[in-house]
Simulated scan of single mutants.
Amino acid sequence: MVSILPKTAKGEIFGFLGPSGAGKSTVQNIMTGLLPLQKGDVLYEGQSLKEVSPDFYNQIGVSFEHPNLYSKLTAQENLVFFSGLFDTPTEDPIKLLDMVGLRESARKKAINFSKGMKQRLVFARALLNNPKILFLDEPTSGLDPTTANKIKGIIYQKKKEGCTIFLTTHNMMAADELCDRIAFLYNGKIVAMDSPRALKLQYGKKAVQVEYRDNKEIKSKLFFLNNKDELKAFNEIVSSQNVETIHTQEATLEQIFIKLTGRGLE
């Protein structure tokens, strides 16, 4: 099990990253009370999860990686049913379905939904009670780029509203784009934790790749900017040549994970 669970702040998107089978979903299930703790504790505002009142579940929303829906109910009926489980005001189901692009499918049974549609419905369900803490497990899995961007936009909006978001994923691009901080989980331990930018600066090269046109020939050169001579040469190229492209050589999150653990995030 994870040795240290990170402390998250209000309005923060925290990414919990690791390969399939690393235990990300298990940690989320423990943090939401679905699985019992075998060792250690989970604290919410200083209070143990073992001691929280039933009202705690009025304050959290959970979107599971594998959609768990009532397949014989329509999308709207699913949301209406689950809204009745809360002892707090809930959002209008049609409004939520509209937000995730399912308004026209409100009266269709979930059994006829595609994987992506089910994923969006589960995500909408997590927003029913306007949660203070949102647990998202692979929220963009199975979604096309346009729909995934819509879901990311909703996540950003919830962050602006002060919602704390705990995101478990092995999608490095989504984590890099969304998260304020990330933790890499491997073999039950957090092997690195910081902002995506800080991790890339720590493990990446301080270098740029420059493509420039010399007469009719395209040339490419890599400059390491922490070297004074190469920094001078880079400035000379930029000021004297017809530069076509400049790319930083920062490490990707997946490259960092491989460097730390020796394996990929598939």
Rank of each mutant, 00 (worst) to 15 (best):
V2Q: 13
S3Y: 14
T8G: 12
K10D: 10
G11L: 00
G11H: 03
I13K: 14
F14Y: 13
F16H: 07
P19E: 04
S20Y: 04
G21N: 05
G21F: 00
G21Y: 02
Q28V: 15
I30Q: 11
M31L: 10
T32A: 03
T32N: 09
L35S: 13
L37M: 07
G46K: 10
S53N: 13
F56P: 03
Q59V: 01
I60L: 00
G61A: 01
V62F: 11
F64G: 10
P67W: 01
P67R: 06
L69D: 01
L69Q: 02
Y70F: 09
S71L: 11
L73R: 02
T74D: 03
L79R: 03
L79P: 00
F82K: 10
S83W: 04
F86V: 06
D87N: 15
V100W: 00
G101W: 02
L102P: 02
R103D: 07
E104G: 13
A106E: 12
R107C: 07
K108L: 04
Q119S: 14
V122F: 00
V122L: 01
A126R: 02
L127M: 07
P131L: 01
T140Y: 01
G142I: 02
P145D: 02
T147M: 12
A148S: 15
K150W: 01
K150E: 06
K150S: 12
I151E: 09
K152T: 02
G153Y: 07
Y156T: 13
K160I: 00
E161K: 07
E161P: 00
E161M: 06
C163I: 05
C163A: 10
T164Y: 05
F166G: 06
L167C: 02
H170C: 03
H170L: 04
H170G: 06
D176P: 03
E177L: 08
L178S: 13
C179T: 05
D180R: 08
A183I: 03
F184Q: 06
Y186K: 15
N187F: 11
N187Q: 15
G188E: 06
D194E: 13
S195V: 05
P196S: 08
P196R: 13
L199R: 11
L201I: 04
Q202K: 15
V208P: 14
Q209S: 15
V210F: 07
E211M: 12
Y212Q: 04
Y212F: 14
D214K: 15
D214S: 14
K219D: 06
K219V: 12
K219F: 09
K221P: 14
N226S: 07
N227L: 12
N227I: 10
N227V: 13
K232M: 07
A233E: 09
F234I: 04
V238M: 14
V238Q: 08
V238H: 07
Q241P: 07
Q241M: 14
Q241G: 09
E244C: 10
E244M: 12
E250K: 12
Q255E: 15
I256N: 04
F257G: 00
L260S: 04
G262Y: 00
G262H: 00
L265D: 01
L265K: 00
